[in-house]
Each structure stands twice: as structure tokens, then as C-alpha cells.
Nucleic acid binder design. Structure first.
Lengths: 339, 339
DNA sequence: CTGTTAGCGCCTTCAG
DNA sequence: CTGAAGGCGCTAACAG
């Protein structure tokens, strides 16, 4: 690897100083237009690429955002990253990715890597296995801007972007009620994650508001997986009083439920209605097509970038916690349409 | 943001020099075990985080891999990144992401950002719109390690990891032939991308090997999209001699074909067989479930990292071009099973 | 408008 | 085994 050209090389070539070259290239106003032009041409001629590492060391800014996600293998996070990354590019930032693989240990490693890399800010979505949140508090103590997206924890005084999970689940349950379903069960995700506990709350409140009696036996503590959906159905249909509709914490869970119901010869949506949450890509294309709640993933990514960008720019000044809440969009398809 | 602790702070605290601290922390063999221990404890006590920016400037190594993808919104690339990122983490590397959004212009910007960031190596999957490949050659001239994954160009002397697209399409077409389909059409992607032209070649050779006559009218120049799949079917079914099977360049294209066929009241797989390419997540769950060719995305990501890692380590020595070719795995489901 | 100087934090010779 | 010194490339303060 031959040595890259530096501003010193340009300076030597033009018999000026490196400082002038630096200023000319950053379009400083106290440099004559003529000099700027000469420098720019020399930069091109010598094939100069500014060294961002040196610049970062000097300025204390890397213009890099660290993004911590549970996994890149789920399109939900891919979409959010799509939003974050494009917004970042447009604002002169780059994006460093780290996967926690849903493990607290890797999550801590990722945070550490980001701090060592001196990223200007961190966007994180919490791993399912995480019970100790001290690494996030640590970031905050270090005064490194940080915000959560989707999976957050509101007891840490850290800003976040998410959709209104409570309202999303409320709308989902309500839509089943309005279709005439009478015994609506809920398949939940891990409840220590706020995102998921809020959804259960939304489901319960919808039942209450429509004067349907709530049966704790109709809540299954599951997970975001096809398997959890199948198991939930198996459990529900051993009950004496079986449900006639399923509200699932996530589309994969709903998919598992659908498959298991199909396997049992139960008609969806005729006998049992199903609604998911996420609006994953497959939801529209399975049959019956899956009713669900759209999470506005790309918008969430864009908002997440805006938020961290604001926190970075504000520095110490505006320390208050921001909570951006996006409106969930209910998407009604075949799986919950009785009529 | 209060000033982070540096090795100088530790040195001052312990009345030793920064050089000793540096050596102790990097476990240099010429430092006494006692000193190492003292330094390590002081580092923890003072809450020291090594500054990777400074370290990179000094060493000329960032331990960052730049990954250029068309879009993070497609699970295929998400999966590959999953593979790359995990392999990278395990080897002490981090991953910088840039999306080209299928545009040549953004692709060039991304490459430039990577060069300025002084990434140790670049992994790229070419945008659909790219016709001029000079930015890749430029990277090579600069002696910055680079390799392609999935979408590559073999005329640039740049290493690559991909699956055997020719063989994948051959197997797909062959499976339709063996099921007894007689007039097999092909919906292609943009042919200037090697990945896609190879697939057409595989399809043609399969027909030839099984003595089926090849009809150029049964190739539709489409794209990776549901819309292209629908349009292809519309076109094919206006022909005098209609096809009885569809081989698609990609699963979304196949999905579009399926939907259009359904809309036309044509039975799949009874009247017309369909097979895709990618094994996207939705393929298994639609109905009829989609036969396809699995691309081993996570393995591709891992191999891509191994390749770039090797290129980085070898430096100038081993300049020959590597071509890792993964074996495609045919996945037969309902959409192509006549029997 | 441009030059001089100094230093961001770390690492690596070269001495001792 | 440890210290002293210089420099990676860039930028900002201070002069002129």
C-alpha cells in the first residue's frame, strides 16, 4: 500500500503551508478564491483523499453513529437501518453496525466498541436477554449522546423513538372486537421489555373498554417466533373455553398461530380471527393474508437519526429526555375479516 | 462532554511514562507482571477507554470493514450483513455500512467515504444502475483490499464471493423439466449484472441438455420486483404458445408471477409451475409455498469476511484473484410440484 | 489573506 | 524492564 497523499504533499508541491491547504480545502472564507482553486486542482492531480482519522483525532468528532441492533437477519431492523443510514448519509454521517444477537454480553461489547471508536452518538435497540442496563447508563454518564429505538427502557432517562405500542395493540384488539369476535386471546413476548408489556396493556384496555370480560388464561407468555405461535395455539385449544380470535405480539408469532390453526383444520378467519404486529414483508403475501399493525420502520429510522443528530448538536445544553412516538397504522387483511 | 481519560492521565497517576502504560495495556512482553497489573487497575479505576481514533492514526489500521450494499431493506442483504458482522466482531473488526440505493452515484460516494475513513478493506455488492466501474478499479489501484459479494464484475481483477448462479438456475430449470413441464419461460433481471446473466445461461443450458427447444420469446427482460413478475406473466400469456412453467430470477419476481397467475385463475402448480431464486423468508409461507434456490446468505457473509480478512493480512504478497463459489441449494416446495 | 506553532492520543524506535 | 522523543495527518489559535 503506497503512502497516501497528505496536505503536506500538496503544500510542498505548491510552495505554501499545510495550514493554507487545509483551509482552502475546507473552503475557509479567509482564503483567496485563486488559492482555493489551485489547491483544489493540485488535490485532484495528486489524487488526494482527506484522512478522516486524523481529522477526527484533531476535531474530536468522528461523524459516525453507532447502531446497535439485536440482529440484521430480521427485516424489521433492516428497514430501520435503511432509514437511519440514508438520513445519516444525507447529513454527512456514517453508520457503524453492531449486532447483539439478543445477548446482553454482546450488547455490552458493542457499546464498548462504540465508545472506543469515539462515535458521535449511539442508537440502540435492546436485546431480549438484557436484564442489566448499566452499560446504557454508563454511556449516558460519559455524556455520549444515546437514544433507543423500538425496544427501549424508560427508567434510564434516555430518549427514544418508538411507535405507540399500547395504541397499536389496542387498535388490533379493537378491530377483532368490531368484527364480532368474542373470546380474544393474546400471545405475548417477553414482558420485561417495555415494548411488549405495553402491547399487552393495549389489548387488555381494549377488552375493558368494550365490556368484554378479561380472562388471564387467554394470555400466553410466548416470544417472537413461529414456534411460540404454534405452542400458544396448542395451549389455547386444550382449554375448555377456546378463543375465537388471536392477537399476536408479532407477525412471526401470528404466522405460527396461523399454521397451527390450519394444521388443526380450523378455518381462518371464519372460525378464528388472527392479527399480528409488525407488518413484515411476508404478511401481505401469505394466505390468508395477515392483518397486522404497521410500525413505520423506515420513518422510525429517519426519526431515530434526527433525534440523535439533535442530541449531538445540542451537546450539554438541552438535557431533557425526548420521547418520539410514531402512530401505528392498522392494516386489515383477510385473516381477521369475518364478514 | 468531559474529557476522556488518556494514557497520560494514567501515567501521571502512577508516576510512570505514557509509553509504559501503552505497553502494559497492550500486554507487551518486556513489561513486568507487577506493572501490568497496576496499570490495568488504574485504567479501570480512572475509567479509561482507549481512543481507537488515535490508535488508528498512529498504526495506519482502523480495523473497520466498509460494507457497500444496494439496500438494507431487502432481507437478502440483511442476512449477508448478519454473517459479515458476526464474523467481523469475532475477529476484532467493525462494520461500516453504506447503501447505494441501487444508484451508481451513491455507490461512488460510499466508496469515497470508505477511503476517507481509511477502512482496512471493502466488501461490495454492485448497484443495479452501475455501468461505470472505475470507482472499484480506483480502490484496487490504491491498494485498498476489496472484494465483491453476490453482485460482482469479473473483468476488474477483483476477488468475489457468490453462489454458483449458473448452476442454481440450471438446477431450477432442471427441476421443472423433471416435473414434466414442457414450455418453460424465464423472467430475467438486468443482464449487465453477471449474477443475472449467469442465471439465464444456466436456464438455457438446462433446456439444451434435456433436448427442449429454446424459444427466445420465452425470456422476459424484467427485474427484481413483484411488478416485473406480474408484467412478465401478462406478456407471456398474450403469446400464441403459452408457457406451462416459469423460472424467475428472484423470489419477488416469482411472487409477482404467482399473484398474476392466481388473478388470471390459472392453477399453480397444476397448470403452470413456478420456481424462484433466493429463498427469501416469505417464500416458505405463501401459498402455494414457493420452490426456489437457496443462496446461503449467512454463509456468504462469513465467507466474504474471511476473504477480505485474508486479503488484508496478505497485504501485497498474494495478489491473485480469489473466486469463492458457494453451492446453491434447491428447495422444492408446492409451486413446482405437479405430482 | 497566509504562515507559524502546537497538539489531539497513541505507539514505536532508540536509549539506558 | 522503563524512559525520552518524535510523528501519524490535520486543524485552530495566534501572528503578521
Amino acid at each position: 500500500m503506497k503512502k497516501p497523499v497528505t496536505i503536506n504533499d500538496i503544500a510542498r508541491e505548491l510552495n505554501i503551508t499545510a495550514a493554507t491547504v487545509s483551509r482552502a480545502l475546507s473552503n475557509h472564507r479567509e482564503i483567496s478564491a485563486a488559492t482555493k482553486e489551485i489547491v483544489r486542482q493540485a488535490a485532484i492531480r495528486l489524487d488526494y483523499n482527506p484522512n478522516k482519522v486524523a481529522s477526527s483525532l484533531r476535531s474530536g468528532k468522528t461523524n459516525i453513529i453507532g447502531v446497535l441492533i439485536p440482529t440484521a437477519e430480521h427485516i424489521f431492523f433492516g428497514s430501520v437501518i435503511h432509514g437511519i443510514s440514508n438520513a445519516a448519509s444525507m447529513n454527512g454521517y456514517e453508520v457503524l453496525i453492531y449486532q447483539s444477537n439478543e445477548s446482553e454480553q454482546f450488547e455490552k461489547k458493542g457499546i464498548n466498541a462504540f465508545l472506543n471508536a469515539r462515535v458521535d452518538g449511539i442508537l440502540a435497540s435492546i436485546a431480549k436477554d438484557t436484564r442489566d442496563f448499566s452499560h446504557f447508563s454508563y454511556v449516558k454518564e460519559k455524556n455520549v449522546p444515546i437514544a433507543f429505538f423500538d425496544r427501549f427502557n424508560d427508567s434510564l432517562g434516555i430518549s427514544s423513538v418508538c411507535i405507540d405500542d399500547y395504541r397499536g395493540a389496542f387498535l388490533a384488539a379493537e378491530s377483532l372486537i368490531k368484527e364480532g369476535y368474542k373470546r380474544i386471546a393474546y400471545i405475548s413476548g417477553p414482558l420485561h421489555i417495555k415494548t411488549f408489556s405495553e402491547r399487552v396493556r393495549g389489548y387488555k384496555d381494549a377488552l375493558e373498554q368494550y365490556d368484554m370480560n378479561f380472562d388471564p388464561g387467554l394470555i400466553y407468555n410466548g416470544d417472537i417466533s413461529i414456534e411460540a405461535g404454534r405452542n400458544a395455539i396448542k395451549a389455547f385449544f386444550k382449554l375448555e373455553r377456546k378463543p375465537d380470535a388471536i392477537c399476536a405480539v408479532e407477525d412471526f408469532t401470528a404466522l405460527g398461530a396461523l399454521k397451527e390453526l390450519k394444521g388443526m383444520g380450523i378455518n381462518v378467519p371464519g372460525d378464528v380471527g388472527v392479527i399480528g404486529f409488525c407488518n413484515d414483508l411476508f404478511s401481505e403475501h401469505i394466505s390468508p393474508s395477515l392483518s397486522t399493525v404497521d410500525q413505520q420502520t423506515v420513518a422510525m429510522g429517519e426519526e431515530a437519526f434526527e433525534l440523535i443528530h439533535k442530541l449531538i448538536k445540542d451537546g450539554h445544553k438541552n438535557q431533557r429526555v425526548h420521547r418520539k412516538v410514531l402512530e401505528p397504522i392498522i392494516v386489515l387483511r383477510e385473516s381477521s375479516k369475518r364478514t
